[in-house]
Design a protein around this nucleic acid. Sequence first.
RNA 1: GGGCCCAUAGCUCAACGGGUUAGAGCGCCUGGCUUAUAACCGGGAGGUUCCGGGUUCGGGUCCCGGUGGGCCUACCA
Length: 1023
Amino acid sequence: MSARDFKATLRLPEGAFSMKADLAKREPQWLDRWNKAGLYRAMLERPSEKTFVFHDGPPYANGNLHYGHVLNNTLKDFVTRCRTILGERVKFIPGWDCHGLPIEQNVERALGPKMRELTPMQRRAKCRDEAQKWVDAQSAQRQRLGMLGTWDAPYLTMQPAFEARVLEALAAFVDRGLVYRGLKPVWWSSAERTALAESELEYEDDHKSPSVYVRFRGDHAVSDKLRERFPTLREGGPVSAVIWTTTPWTLPANRALAVHPELEYVLLERSKRDGSVEYLLVAEPLAKSVIAACGWNTPELLPRTMHGAGSAFVGKELEGLVFSHPFEERRSPIVFADYVESTAGTGIVHTAPGHGREDYNTGVKYGLEVYSPVDDAGEFTEELGPVAKSWGIVGKHVFAANPVISAKLEELGVLCNADGAFIVHRYPISWRSKKPLLTRATVQWFIAMDEPMKGGVNPGKTLREVSLEEIDRLAKDGALAQEQGAEARGWVPAWGRERIHGMMFARPDWCISRQRAWGVPIPALHCEHCGHPNLSSALVRHVAKLFASQGADAWYDENAPVVPEGFCCEKCGATHGFTRDASILDVWFESGSSFYAVCASDPDLGFPCDLYLEGSDQHRGWFHSSLLVGVATHGQAPYKTVATAGFVGEKVQVAQPDGKMKTVLKAMSKSDIEKKRQGGEDVSVYDPQKVIAADGAEILRLWVASNDYTDDIGLSKAAFDQVKESYRSIRNVLRFLLQVVRGEVVETVAEVGAALQPIDRWQQQKLVALVARCESAYRHFDFRAVVAAVSEFLSDASGFYLDVSKDWLYNDYKSDRVRSTLAVCDAMVRSIAVILAPILPFTTEDVWDHLPRRKDDPTSVHLCMWPKLSCEHDSTLDDAVRVVRELRDRANLAIEPVVSAWGAEKKAAQQEKRVAGEDEVRWPESARIDHPRDADVELDVSEGDASILRPLTGVLAECLLLGALTVNVRDGVPRTRAVRGAKSACVRCRRRIRDVDSASGLCVRCSTAVARWDAEHPAPSAG
RNA sequence: GGGCCCAUAGCUCAACGGGUUAGAGCGCCUGGCUUAUAACCGGGAGGUUCCGGGUUCGGGUCCCGGUGGGCCUACCA
């Protein structure tokens, strides 16, 4: 008669939750299901305590999603989901930035020369299609990440309602007296005849530019002034200020010479071969290099430093001096500028306000003329001075004119160095034509940073002042929140304040106009009679109304009523004859107005927003422009909290100066990836779409959640492999919990009530702590702390609590301790599903699907509320478990050498077997311990510890996973002894325990369980 | 060139206002189980906290200076 197989009487883990996630295949199915069920709407319609206004910064509708988007969008979705699950209402309206030059150029590239034949309206229609194409593509890609949002009703900056609100925001600036028209240098591509934005610049590393040192002669007044200081200055020895430039073509536009007020300057006395002398003014630290560059260091020409009362003097002392332009009949005064450096050039900077931003700023400060005699094609115009004109360079491209100008400088004897000298440096080129750019002053619309504001909130203060105050108000609020331990507010992380403050402090006036077609027009009307550009707020609001119904295309529609009835020129009163302004608004103005267009007017949202979350580059971009618009329209920042993410880089090994290798983050470059691809490397990890297709969006989400997103994040195959590993480990413990619960509706912890066993109560306490920890982490946007806390919790549960409870979960039959443990396991799996739902929406839904529904259970984990577990914390249980685990470690240490010696013996025997054919293992049977449950351990426990572990005394052997355990309560050096347990193990629970009945092979516990099982399961009549 | 930021185990991260022997998860090595099995359990190795100074009784933590890296910015005029 064969022994009875008791397997059927055990309560073994079972369930259909697969070990393999198969995410790539299954994620789309869940998405589909959620869509059909209207999950997000259901989430929004739940009763909630408060509304959390989370405003999407619009990505640019151009190209597929890259890792920056993945990082950013995933974080946004964590926020939407965790705030929702914490009981708030989060209506996330995804948006897109649809206007602007890159889209226009995509279209131009596709259409080629045909573009020119189209009317502005037709061109705009093409651009709209192009933008919409990318909106659709990105929308699908963002949704594939699992992102929640009102995808059927996004906001687009090209929607008429949005365009109208942008103009209303502009009207607010006009009302506050901040909008003006001015002349200002911009990056200009002569090849494309257009201004370029920062993002459209590329840099050529080895660009060759001419390098010229030029004399600016000083008159008698200069000589006289300097003689006060340097009495030996010879009468008739000309004095010149020496400048250096790489753009000789800007010399016709020279209007001043800039020196640093604190920099030291010297006069060089240079004796020429003919016996005459000249005096050259340069910065002291640069004198040597200027002498070298100009070839003055031959012995007979060696200049001497002029020594006066002091060896040198500071730039300040040059105040009021005026020098002569090298070829035109005009004067160049000395001005002061902080940007003048002592590391390159001569320390005296040729200043052409029409051809450089710094020069321009200096020009504004000193009231210099912004003069730029260059047209759209980059060619000199008739505005050139008479001398330059006489050189025949009118109509010549400025770069082509460079050699002519150098040659003339030499002819005139004002060139210090050799004609034809050049330098190699980094220089901006057009991203499209790759042609070098020039800076050129053009007439543009501006917003004044430093004009006192009229009306509204904070009248009399400037835009810059209020903006800086707002930046600090947020910072203070954030500090206060931190002090109070409240959820994170203000600048997150706090150093965001430094970044945006520095930028706001130093920024120039905001140039809001662009000479393009694809955007929101600046609705100015130019009077044909007097030339006045009319831009009143009434006019702007009139056009806004028109745009609201017809879209911004109306501006390009001859028949649209853009001129209000009864309109007359502000300046001359003319009632007809108006030309529409040809510029559009900077796209940053549009996106900066998004809170105004999307949130402020939506009853579900409001002003200010609770949160903006973008990459830290947006301190310059969206955070910045939104702040300015917020101050103009509402007198305050449009957000309460600004959270920032870093950048995604690539992990690479780099040799350090000391020869050691170090892993370092490098910015990802397309060309590097392309090189790898050509080198046969697998580059799919660099394409998020490919990662999603292979491993699922969940892996990307977990990757984001395990990193410190406030810093830059590294990308590598190894990084993803690790994420996949941690995913599996989380998934497997959840799987085991599900298998323990086995799809049965088990009692809740509350229902178990007083029958809750101490060990289960302890685990429940841990769970309560975990829930609290994760809530706090979510409120601080600290997602990685959630993942870390849950991982550690699950790993600990797997290694101790679950391992220990297996004994009774499998072997008891409907005992109180099974009820008790099942209740806690159920609570664990449910709580953790909810905790992780914001980060792993797919997996947690999978878990939820495998849990039986209780009454009131929602159909989706995403409709669950945050776990509300109550459990008074009993710290004596913590102490008891601590002692138990110490004993467990001691027992394990005692058993380990026996187990591993046995293992070594067995291995040796197996090898020997192959040689000698022996079957028997020689290790004495009495000493064999394969598994802790074979062991019989005797432990000394101090009286103190014995008392501490009293709550768990009843399950001590199980906690130590042992077959049998003898505890000797005695103080002194504790002894631990492990031997093999009883001769025969219980055939059912496999414990080598003393009370095994030799007939049945069952221990007492198991025979009771079997008897009860048999009673409830009448055997079938036969067999 | 300027502003802001980062650097702790192979990887991702901890270490409350300076205070025991710098921890965890994953990986790695190793042994076991075969009732979580492409799983699980035990044991173990692995750190000059980037470098150099300073303050301090005491520095991963604070200060200064480097090195490497990132973002933003800048017509090296």
